[in-house]
Computed example of a mutant assay.
Amino acid sequence: MVHRVGYAPGVYDLFHVGHLNILRHARSQCDYLVAGVVSDEMAALAKGHKPVIPLPERLEIVRSVRYVDAAFVETVPDKVETWQQVRFDVIFKGDDWRGTEKGKRLERDFAEVGVEVVYFPYTVHTSSTQLRRALDTLVSPPPGALSAP
């Protein structure tokens, strides 16, 4: 019997050690872990661009991580609406959300339905945003960087 269901939402684009750390830490604090993989459309709304890795591939990667019991495609911006479908007891977020308006709203909304919000240390030295910037630089070097002599 499952006692405590955890939910770890994320885009999980350009999967890296920060993603692995969140999933590992989350699994250590629940009996059953559901990873919420944000759809391409939802990621574009939240971040202003689509992920580099398409949803089916991100879903397969996340499902294959040994700490994850199930993966769920997140298609709505409202986490409480997602909770109504998944029914988790605790949601895990990076501590870059702590104290922000988004984090405070998340805490208020989930307090109403009895879901605990747990923050984990954000992996500052590695992020999909940094990886994406590095890739963009390789693909589109600054003007004059590749100019012929």
Rank of each mutant, 00 (worst) to 15 (best):
M1C: 12
R4C: 13
A8V: 09
P9Q: 09
V11Y: 01
D13I: 03
H16M: 08
V17M: 13
H19E: 04
L20C: 12
L20K: 14
N21H: 14
I22G: 01
R24I: 07
A26R: 09
R27C: 03
S28W: 13
Q29T: 10
C30I: 02
C30V: 02
V34W: 01
A35P: 08
A35H: 08
G36T: 05
S39V: 04
S39E: 04
S39F: 06
E41N: 06
M42Q: 15
L45A: 12
K47T: 11
P51Y: 02
P54E: 09
P54A: 03
P54T: 05
P56S: 10
P56E: 11
R58G: 09
L59E: 15
L59R: 14
E60D: 10
I61Y: 09
R63G: 06
A70D: 15
A71K: 04
T75S: 11
V76I: 12
P77Y: 12
D78W: 04
V80Q: 12
T82F: 00
Q84M: 09
Q85A: 14
D89P: 06
D89S: 10
I91P: 13
F92Y: 15
F92R: 14
G99R: 05
T100F: 10
K104D: 13
K104C: 10
L106K: 01
E107M: 14
R108P: 02
D109Y: 04
D109H: 10
F110H: 15
G114V: 08
V117G: 10
V118K: 15
Y119M: 06
F120V: 10
Y122K: 02
Y122E: 01
T123F: 04
T126P: 00
S127G: 02
T129N: 00
Q130A: 12
L131M: 13
R132C: 00
R133F: 01
L138E: 07
V139K: 15
G144P: 07
G144Y: 04
G144S: 03
